[in-house]
Nucleic acid binder design. Structure first.
Lengths: 124, 124
DNA sequence: GCATATAGTGTCATAAAGGATACCGTGATG
DNA sequence: CATCACGGTATCCTTTATGACACTATATGC
């Protein structure tokens, strides 16, 4: 397996890297997409996954993801309301990115972020 | 246009995604990393790659990347100054992410027309 | 003597992102 | 009758990421 030569890293026209980052770079978007990778979720289910998001922010981020064609919003004519969010095909196409982000985070953030947690679990 | 403040590190499974996004989510960081994947670059070389970045912003982003251990800064005792930036091992470990971002961008936002088409085909 | 290139730094301004808080409508529950 | 759950809106307000612009030092070439 030859080491990949990155000779074709040209980022000239409208930069794909930057453009993609712009779409998923909202404060909660990565996490929302990540959780939706596992399947359809209701508004408050997502909200509970994202510990400290406000309603306004969550609505905001979901609307942007919807506008970008990544997720669909299905409203049930019920009271109390029921709204389900799920990924579109377009949204699922982000899976490699989300996976790469998660893998990297698991590998490289674990050490510093869970140092305290590790110590605690050691003590236990 | 401020970008993101990913400060929430206490959510269980999605946390790595957000944490990673936090590190590479600066306005120019993705592109800087992308260009450095091809090899060492001087300050003004990076600047020329990033069409409209200001000196202050570029310095700022480079310092943050350096502080996060992604790049190294090598100053030559010359006049006029010569400063070279290159990826560390830690920085190179982001390669799968950057590649995934570029691949997705190339595929899905090559032009606004294709993006609109993708969204429309989702609706169908 | 003067402009030029390089890699910055400092100050100030601003638009946008994100947060806090309050309110809405209604069916079921107590 | 009062309250809660759900999925939001509507207004504020604060934070901060980014931009514009000016300034620096000095070896080198003209």
């Amino acid at each position: 397996m030859p080491r990949i030569r990155h000779t074709n890293f040209d980022c000239a026209p409208g930069c794909p890297v930057e453009g993609t980052l712009n779409l998923i770079g909202g404060k909660w978007k990565g996490m929302i997409l990540f959780h939706l990778m596992s399947g359809t979720l209701r508004f408050n289910e997502i909200r509970r996954h994202l510990n400290s998001v406000t309603q306004r922010m969550l609505t905001n981020q979901l609307r942007e993801l919807e506008a970008d064609g990544f997720i669909t919003r299905k409203v049930y004519a019920q009271v109390p309301p029921k709204v389900e969010y799920s990924l579109t095909e377009h949204g699922r196409s982000l899976e490699p990115i989300i996976s790469a982000l998660k893998l990297w985070g698991d590998t490289h953030l674990r050490s510093q972020a869970t140092k305290a947690a590790a110590v605690r679990s050691q003590a236990a």
